[in-house]
Amino acid sequence: MLTILFDGFAYGMLLFVLACGLSITLGLMNFINLAHGAFAMAGGYLTVVLMNRYGVSFFLCLPAGFIATAFLGAILERTLYVHLYGKSHLDQVLFSIGLVFMAMSAIDYFMGAQQQLITLPDSLRGRIDLFGISIGVYRLFVIGICLLLAVALQLVLSKTRFGSQLRAAVDDPRVAQGLGINVNLIFSLTFAFGSGLAGLGGVLGAEILGLDPGFPVKFMIYFLVVISVGGTTTLTGPFLASILLGIADVAGKYYMPKIGSFIIYTIMVLVLIWRPQGLFGRATAR
């Protein structure tokens, strides 16, 4: 029972790292980016290539995955995404679905359609016994990293100058611009950073979530559930939502494998009917 709770927690933390970049994009520019999962997939596949072809250590792959996808995100933001900020949501949805299709086929072409496996370093394998609960070392490692990231993100957002500029831009981009804040630059940086986080999540999740060309579509729904249940105005909302989702998903699949994922979608639809702004989001004018 407790093991399931723990695994669910680890799963939820992973979802948070994967999804929080999307929450910022959606909250800041009101941009619906369904291609977020493609960045996570890029991070995962980079790890597979680095580890299995070049024998790079897993620990080096973590920062590499972050930097490479952040860079990719920055390039795509400057060249493609920037044209779509003012466009309708329909256009944004179509555009990002197009990107997802391209990414999936490209991965299929270069890497093949099969599930990719990575071998974790010895120090992260096995299980330990903690207070009578059997815990996978790797899951503990994932939780540690994700918690650190969550705390760091919260600190950056609430304590630094960049964080307050970002929050100002979220609340009202026009006034923020008027006050001399370079909203475009902030958005580029945030987009790149969010993509990087997705990439890092992809590296961490390659072992837990599995990695194949269908990844962006398979997990897109999870990211969107996190965002829509948690709301886009704070980081705490998506954080709590992803933990809830992680535990509910793992427990549901364990206890009721027949209707496991059915529960999640139903909960999401119910929450959205009850509170269209998300459980923890506050109502905005938009």
Binding site: L26, I32, H89, V93, I221, L224, V225, I227, S228, I259, S261, F262, Y265, T266, M268, V269, L272, I273, P276, Q277, R286
Partner: peptide, 21 residues
């Protein structure tokens, strides 16, 4: 109800629920 994002999510959710069923 709700914004474009909510519409997207609910329509997607209904289709996924049916597929699961």
């Amino acid at each position: 109800r709700g914004t474009d994002l909510t519409k997207l999510m609910v329509t997607l959710g209904v289709a996924l629920i049916l597929r699961e069923l």
